[in-house]
Write a protein that binds this DNA or RNA. Structure first.
Length: 112
DNA sequence: AACCTGACAGCCG
DNA sequence: ACGGCTGCCAGGT
C-alpha cells in the first residue's frame, strides 16, 4: 500500500530544523534574533520548539546570536554568549541583556 | 497511552 | 524590576 511516507512527521520535523538553523545563520555579527522571531519566520510550531532544535543542533550555528524575547541571553553558557557579543560589538545593557531594539534582526525562512 | 521535561513567551502579583 | 504560573507542541522515559 503506498507506504510512501513511513515517517512523514519526522521528515517535517527535519525540514523545520533546517529552516531554523538557516535563520540563525542569516543573523549577521553584532545582531541578534529571538526564538519567537525564528518561529514566526518559519511559521510553524512555536518558540519552544525552536529552542529544542537549538539545544540539539545549535552547535552548528552561531547560537549566541539567538536570545530570548526580552533580550536575555540563552539559558546556557550565558558567559560564553556574552564573550561573543562583546567581541562582535553587540549592544549590551548593564542588566546583562542585549539591547533588542538596537540589535534585533528578523531572519527569513528562505532556503538559506 | 500517560506523564514529565524543555536554548520560550506572555501575563499577573 | 523580579519571580512565578500558564499555555503550546514535540520528544523522551
Amino acid at each position: 500500500m503506498d507506504p510512501v511516507e513511513p515517517d512523514a512527521r519526522a521528515r517535517a520535523w527535519e525540514e523545520f530544523v533546517e529552516a531554523v538553523l538557516s535563520c540563525v545563520e542569516q543573523v549577521p555579527p553584532g545582531r541578534v534574533t529571538t526564538y519567537g522571531a525564528i518561529a514566526d519566520a518559519v511559521g510553524r510550531h512555536g518558540p519552544r520548539r525552536v529552542g529544542n532544535v537549538m539545544s540539539r543542533h545549535g552547535g552548528a550555528v552561531p547560537w549566541w546570536r539567538v536570545v530570548r524575547a526580552d533580550g536575555t541571553l540563552p539559558a546556557c553558557h550565558d558567559g560564553e554568549a556574552r564573550q561573543h557579543h562583546l567581541e562582535e560589538g553587540t549592544p549590551l545593557r548593564r542588566s546583562g541583556k542585549v539591547d533588542l531594539p538596537a540589535a534585533f534582526f528578523q531572519p527569513e525562512s528562505g532556503p538559506a
